[in-house]
Design a binder for these strands. Sequence first.
DNA 1: GCGACAG
DNA 2: ATCTTGTCGC
Length: 227
Amino acid sequence: MEIMVPHPWPSTPPEAEAIQNELRGRVEPAGSVTPRTVAGLDVSYAGDGGGDRARVAAAAVVLDAETLEVVAESVAVGTSDFPYVPGLFAFRELPTLVEALRGLDATPDLLVCDGYGLAHPRRFGLACHVGVITGLPTIGVAKTAFVGTYEQPGPKRGDRSPLLLDGVEVGRVLRTQDGVKPVFVSVGHRVGLDEACRLTLALAPRFRLPETTRRADRLSRDRLATV
DNA sequence: GCGACAG
DNA sequence: ATCTTGTCGC
């Protein structure tokens, strides 16, 4: 698919924050989302991923939203030149992730990101950034807590509790399987929170994480091992 | 001021 | 994120 990034890749945190503040106004509200295809995005690191200039592999795997079968996939290798800074996470993974997306034959109807969307210090996490850049509906599904406060949701699949930031629900803590740790769902671009949770559950019929994320994780990891 | 902090 | 042994469960 075609992607036009509306800004240069920053090399320092101040430059990155300025870009987030500029792009944050371009996030669009919920529209009607009934995806036929959904793409999962993920990035793997070689060696000490916490260091700068690490070798990375980014993957985009498109699944049929109904059958969860793989219909397309793309991987890109590169380096992450931006340091890992909580809140500026997008700038570390986006360059390679964009390359992976560009390698897809078809354009997915929805993108599922590994991280947060609006549940972010400046309300502009990775999922929002990917959404604004691609123009596609996006949601973020994170594995651990970042910002906001919440109560532990019930023990069953589907149980949820609001993720609050300054008294506003910026996301939801969602249990995708009975008795397993919940995931953190937040809206990225053009999708509502209720819809984001419904989609996340539909994409995770058997495991904790969405099938989209699991496929992208495996593909990016395998690519690093092969190069 | 100090600590916490998506991947 | 990645580095890692053994261990519990389907």
